[in-house]
Each structure stands twice: as C-alpha cells, then as structure tokens.
C-alpha cells in the first residue's frame, strides 16, 4: 500500500521512506488535527441533516401511520358496533314477529274455540229440543196406547163377561179395568 510515495521520501514522521507506517498510525500526532477537524465537520453536518430533515420526516411518517392505524381501529370498532346494533335490531324484529305470530295463532284459536263453543251450544240446544219433542211424542203415543189398551181391555172384558153369560154392566167393567190397569 502507498508505495507511490517512494520517490518523495517520508512526508511525515509516521511514514518511512517506503510509505509504510512507522509505529501505529493511530498514535501519529501529525494527523490527529486533520482527523479531528474533518470529523467535527462530519458530525455537525450529519446532526443538521438529521435534526432538520431526516428525523422530523420519519417521525411525521410514523405519527401519520400511528394515526391511520388508530383511525382504522376506531372505524373498525364503529363498524363492529353498527353490526352489533343491526344484529340486535334483527333479533328484536324476529322476536316481534314471533310474538305477533303467536298472538295471531292465539286469536285464531280463541275464535275457533268460540265458534266451536257456539256451535256446540246450538247443537246441544237443538238436541235438547229434539229430545223434548221426541219425549212429548213418545208420551203422547204412550198415552194414546194406554187409552187404546183401556178401550180394548174394556171391550175385551165386556165380551168375555157377555160370553160367560153375565150381564155386562158397563160402569162396573170400566171401574174394574181402571183398577186393574192402575195396579
């Protein structure tokens, strides 16, 4: 390295005539001022670039990203809440519809029951009327049958008494038949 300085000889106490290092180049006092000078300039330049341009820009981008993320999370939260509200509304509508349906069913049932009750009552009444009528008819038939039986019995009794040679007293026969019939 640095053999091109051969012909010029040593330009510094730290470099030999072949351009090689004498001792440690790091400890060469001749060069330190130069290094310090340029280093200070470098650090100042970097500091101004960073503090004026780079860091505020990166910080603003990071803050913007943070803001975007926060907003997105808030929006997502809002949407989630809306979805929950919609679900609640849906559930409520469903429950309302169920209640309505069961109300209608109950009403229909009650109506049918009422109709049924009325019809049953009417039918009962009709049946009762028919039964009464029938009973009356039966009673009439029975009465007429009884009368017929009495008449037949009187006639038969009168005939039998006449055949046996007795004088049939109509009044006595009637009394006897009536007594017999009641017994």
């Amino acid at each position: 390295m640095a053999t091109e300085t051969d012909t010029h000889g040593a330009v510094s106490a730290c470099v030999d005539s072949h351009g090689g290092a004498v001792g440690m180049p790091q400890l060469c006092g001749d060069w330190m001022g130069n290094q310090v000078f340029w280093l200070v300039i470098t650090l100042v330049v970097i500091y101004f670039i960073l503090s004026r341009v780079a860091l505020p820009r990166i910080a603003s981008v990071l803050a913007e990203r943070q803001g975007t993320i926060t907003n997105d999370i808030a929006a997502a939260e809002e949407l989630k809440q809306k979805a929950e509200e919609a679900e609640a509304a849906y559930n409520k509508a469903l429950a309302d519809a169920r209640a309505e349906a069961s109300k209608i069913v109950a009403e229909a049932k009650a109506e049918i029951q009422a109709d049924l009750d009325a019809a049953t009552q009417k039918a009962d009444a009709e049946i009762a009327a028919k039964a009464a009528e029938s009973a009356k008819a039966i009673a009439a038939i029975q009465a007429s049958a009884m009368e017929s039986i009495e008449a037949v019995a009187k006639d038969t009794t009168g005939e039998i008494v006449g055949v046996l040679g007795g004088k049939a007293d109509a009044k006595a026969i009637t009394a006897a038949v009536t007594a017999e019939m009641k017994g």
Partner: peptide, 9 residues
C-alpha cells in the same frame, strides 16, 4: 504491513 491501511494520506 497490517498497519499500512491506517495511514492518512
């Protein structure tokens, strides 16, 4: 020449 790389020119 391990130290030659550190020479200031």
């Amino acid at each position: 020449h391990p130290m030659d790389q550190f020479i200031v020119k």
